[in-house]
Design a protein around this nucleic acid. Structure first.
Length: 135
DNA sequence: GCCAACGTTGGC
DNA sequence: GCCAACGTTGGC
């Protein structure tokens, strides 16, 4: 069981879009590090869903419901997708600012490499964030 | 809207 | 194989 963080601009693809669809593939990843993280995901893994740019906050949790397969939006076989389903919305969003200020979250990839769109999250980090979001 | 940081591309 | 140039992302 591993934990992840997936990032999207809400104007392009938001948490609400995923909820509306029930499940969906996560396409458009064109970065090798992010791709490698997608490939490492296993069914049942949980991912924090982060809204970048305008909101800059984690808004919900998504679950991996299908492991990686070739990206249907391109013929280029280097790229792949993973299917997610919404697992639950946080009671309140956990903001980037809050994460930066939290002493247990200073090592998060989100803080240190904000551009990586699919990133691993430590179990304790995941639990701290869920704890904040449910408080 | 700006720009720093990062990743990728392509010429050599 | 190196590295300059370029494009993109995302925080501010």
């Amino acid at each position: 069981m591993n934990y992840w963080l997936i990032k999207s601009e809400p104007s392009t693809y938001s948490w609400e879009d995923l909820v509306k669809l029930g499940r969906d593939h996560w396409d458009g990843v064109r970065n090798y590090s992010a791709r490698n993280n997608l490939r490492a995901m296993q069914e049942g893994d949980l991912a924090l869903f982060y809204h970048s740019v305008n909101e800059k906050a984690i808004i919900g949790i998504a679950k991996v419901v299908r492991e990686h397969y070739p990206d249907p939006t391109t013929d280029d076989d280097r790229w792949l997708v993973v299917d997610f389903a919404p697992e639950g919305k946080l009671t309140r969003p956990v903001t980037l600012e809050e994460i930066k200020q939290h002493p247990q979250l200073t090592e998060m990839v989100l803080v240190n490499n904000s551009r990586l769109s699919v990133q691993p999250v430590q179990k304790d980090e995941f639990e701290v964030i869920v704890g904040l979001g449910e408080s």
